[in-house]
Computed example of a mutant assay.
Amino acid sequence: MEHSFSHLDAQGTVTMVDVGGKTPGRRVAIAEAIVELAPATLELLQKAALPKGDVLTCAKIGGIMAAKRVDELIPLCHSLQLSFADIRFEVRDRPPRVRIEAEARSVGATGVEMEAIVAAQTAAAIIYDMCKAIQRDIVISRVRLLHKSGGKSGEFNAPELPL
Results as ranks from 00 to 15, higher is better:
Met1Gln: 09
Ser6Glu: 09
Ala10Thr: 09
Ala10Ser: 14
Gln11Ser: 14
Gln11Pro: 02
Thr15Gly: 06
Val17Lys: 00
Gly21Glu: 07
Gly21Met: 01
Lys22Gln: 04
Lys22Thr: 05
Thr23Met: 03
Gly25Arg: 05
Val28Ser: 03
Val28Trp: 04
Ile30His: 04
Ala31Val: 01
Ile34Tyr: 15
Ala38Glu: 15
Ala38Ile: 05
Ala38Leu: 11
Pro39Val: 06
Ala40Val: 10
Leu42Arg: 14
Leu42Thr: 14
Leu42Glu: 14
Glu43Ile: 02
Leu44Trp: 11
Leu44Thr: 08
Leu45Trp: 11
Leu45Asp: 10
Gln46Met: 13
Lys47Arg: 15
Ala48Asp: 14
Ala49Phe: 14
Gly53Ala: 12
Val55Leu: 14
Cys58Val: 08
Cys58Ala: 10
Ala59Thr: 03
Gly62Trp: 01
Gly63Ile: 01
Ile64Ser: 05
Lys68Thr: 04
Lys68Met: 03
Glu72His: 12
Pro75Gln: 08
Pro75Gly: 05
Ser79Trp: 10
Ser79Gln: 11
Leu80Glu: 10
Gln81Asn: 13
Gln81Met: 11
Leu82Ser: 12
Phe84Glu: 02
Ala85Ser: 14
Asp86Glu: 13
Arg92Tyr: 14
Arg92Lys: 09
Asp93Met: 09
Pro95Glu: 00
Pro95Ala: 01
Pro96Phe: 13
Pro96Tyr: 13
Arg97His: 06
Ala102Glu: 05
Ser106His: 05
Gly108Trp: 09
Ala109Pro: 02
Ala109Arg: 15
Thr110Met: 00
Glu113His: 09
Ala120Val: 02
Thr122Pro: 00
Thr122Ser: 07
Ala123Trp: 06
Ile126Trp: 10
Ile127Pro: 10
Ile127Lys: 11
Asp129Arg: 06
Met130Ile: 08
Met130Asp: 11
Cys131Ala: 08
Cys131Glu: 12
Ile134Lys: 15
Ile134Asp: 03
Gln135Leu: 03
Arg136Val: 00
Ser141Lys: 10
Arg142Glu: 11
Arg144Gly: 02
Leu145Thr: 00
Leu146Tyr: 05
Leu146Asp: 01
Lys148Arg: 05
Ser149Asn: 07
Gly150Asn: 06
Gly154Ala: 01
Phe156Ala: 00
Asn157Gln: 01
Pro159Ser: 14
Glu160Ile: 05
Leu163Trp: 13
Leu163Val: 04
